[in-house]
């Protein structure tokens, strides 16, 4: 057991836990967040993505110790305090870009990170970046539309 400090959605957290625990389990179990999902535990599908110091990162393998002192944003942390959704979240709603929605966390987090880095990212760049994010329902076409739309807002 070790004391680990990190910031999650703007709140600093100090937790006593096994430093090898993957960040995903800490977020879901200790902090009771639902956004990041367990998909593969192998960094192959993107369902568990969070934004770590500004960059979309899978959280299912990363030991929590590696997030020490860092800033983690999860899906829950994207909306403003008054509930207004982030433009990417809003675009997903507008385009109804989900079916079962299990992949949606990773899709949204990754898109936010890509557009933060390059607000003018084109379709090819978005496809390239989100290639890690698996969707089994086949909602890709709508997701692409949503992200391209969010780019404009």
């Amino acid at each position: 057991m070790k004391s680990i400090s990190l910031t999650v959605n703007g709140t600093s957290q100090t937790l006593e836990l096994d430093p090898g625990t993957p960040l995903l389990y800490v977020l879901r179990e200790e902090l009771e967040l639902n956004g990041p999902k367990f998909g593969c535990g192998l960094q192959q599908c993107g369902a568990c993505m969070v934004i770590l110091d500004g960059k979309a990162t899978p959280s299912c393998v990363l030991p929590v110790a590696a997030a020490e002192g860092k800033e983690v944003v999860t899906l829950e942390g994207l909306a403003k305090e008054d509930g207004t959704l982030h433009p990417v979240q809003q675009a997903f709603l507008d385009e109804q870009a989900a079916q079962c929605g299990y992949c949606l966390n990773g899709m949204v987090m990754h898109a936010v990170s890509v557009l933060d880095e390059n607000p003018a990212a084109g379709e090819e760049e978005i496809r390239e970046a989100l290639d890690i994010n698996i969707c089994r329902c086949g909602t890709h076409s709508r997701i692409l539309k949503a992200i391209l739309k969010a780019r404009k807002s």
Partner: peptide, 21 residues
């Protein structure tokens, strides 16, 4: 009509059996 459940998903609210605690 828009799906009401989609907003829960997009906000990361508890929705799935995986989210039961």
């Amino acid at each position: 009509l828009k799906r009401p459940d989609l907003e829960k998903m997009v906000r990361g609210e508890a929705f799935y059996v995986q989210d039961l605690r």
